[in-house]
């Protein structure tokens, strides 16, 4: 993909720096962001250098020290914001002694708005297409942010994560890789299936969901949060995937896209058990000091999804 459109002075300057590498030295100073979208799209693009990169940016940009310094500043600010939301929420949940039961209960107790329910019963075709465009930013790199975490885990947690990821990556069959199933669905439904195609259209909330996953995946320090995020994601997927599939069928939309969600009804019924009990459970058994971060990651997943749902339901004028 090409670099996205800048959304303010910081992204404009940073994207310009990326383009001139390696012919010219990167500027030592970049302007401040003029708002959260400017900051978020800059961070998203800096992270993207570690995934698939951009056609108009030299590959050495990934480890350029000046760009890394910009990234670090934006990450500190993002993590601080996510943690302060967690601090405001955390007081009301209690824990017993069964880690798996507690984490499932914590996820179930978070009472967020549901886009899937709306798609199931009420959304029109345009609204569903809107949602799929936004979802494509993540689903076209589905599971990739979690792949960074593998080498940082103790043995039992690592094996369990690979058991889950093996399924996400199609059990070795490229046709069954989940990101590929989603690309198929996009194409069948008449949307663009190239990686990052809709980045310029997505709101702050989508950029932040993706940035939070990259932040947690790329920092060893945040391995607990990355896996907590994974657990909450998987534990809120089977039932909503069924609702989304039913909504697509109700509207007579392409069966390839329903197939993606049908696959997730069954796959994530497995994945949630693995993620909560084995992946997170085995991690905190060996490294109990990251337990709080597991909850921080789980909360962040639920909270960012709730914020997205509120934004879209409001945009679609759905009464709460």
């Amino acid at each position: 993909m090409m670099l996205p459109k800048p959304r303010g002075p910081l992204s404009a300057a940073v994207f310009e720096s990326m383009r001139v590498i390696p012919a010219e030295p990167v500027a030592r100073a970049h302007p401040g962001a003029d708002g959260p979208e400017d900051a978020a799209v800059t961070l998203w693009a800096l992270y993207e250098l570690a995934y698939r990169g951009f056609d108009d940016v030299d590959e050495t940009a990934e480890w350029d020290p000046e760009l890394l310094a910009v990234r670090r500043g934006l990450e500190v600010e993002l993590e601080g914001r996510l943690r302060s939301r967690w601090d405001a929420y955390r007081s009301d949940h209690e824990r017993n002694d069964d880690f798996g039961e507690d984490l499932f209960a914590f996820v179930a107790a978070h009472d967020g708005r549901s886009l899937a329910r709306f798609v199931q019963t009420e959304a029109d075709e345009q609204q569903v297409l809107d949602l799929l465009r936004l979802r494509s930013v993540y689903h076209l790199k589905e599971s990739d942010p979690t792949a960074w975490v593998v080498p940082r885990l103790p043995t039992a947690s690592k094996a369990a994560l690979m058991e889950l990821q093996y399924d996400e990556y199609g059990s070795g069959d490229p046709n069954r890789v989940h990101s590929h199933l989603f690309a198929r669905g996009l194409e069948a439904i008449g949307l663009r299936a190239e990686y990052g195609a809709y980045l310029d259209d997505v709101p702050l909330e989508i950029l932040e969901q993706n940035n939070a996953m990259s932040l947690m995946g790329l920092h060893r320090r945040l391995r607990g949060a990355a896996l907590g995020h994974l657990a909450a994601f998987e534990a809120t997927s089977s039932l909503p995937s069924r609702q989304l599939s039913q909504g697509l069928q109700r509207l007579g939309m392409a069966p390839e896209m329903s197939a993606y969600y049908d696959e997730h009804v069954e796959a994530d019924a497995v994945h949630e058990q693995l993620a909560v009990r084995a992946i997170c459970g085995e991690l905190v058994a060996v490294e109990p000091e990251v337990t709080d971060d597991v909850y921080f990651g789980a909360f962040t997943c639920l909270d960012l999804e709730d914020r997205l749902a509120r934004l879209l339901l409001e945009r679609w004028q759905v009464a709460s």
């Binding site: 179930a108 089977s238 039932l239 069954e266």
Partner: peptide, 10 residues
Amino acid sequence: RKPWCDGTHK
């Protein structure tokens, strides 16, 4: 989706 689990138990 029997015999598979689809999360309904929750």
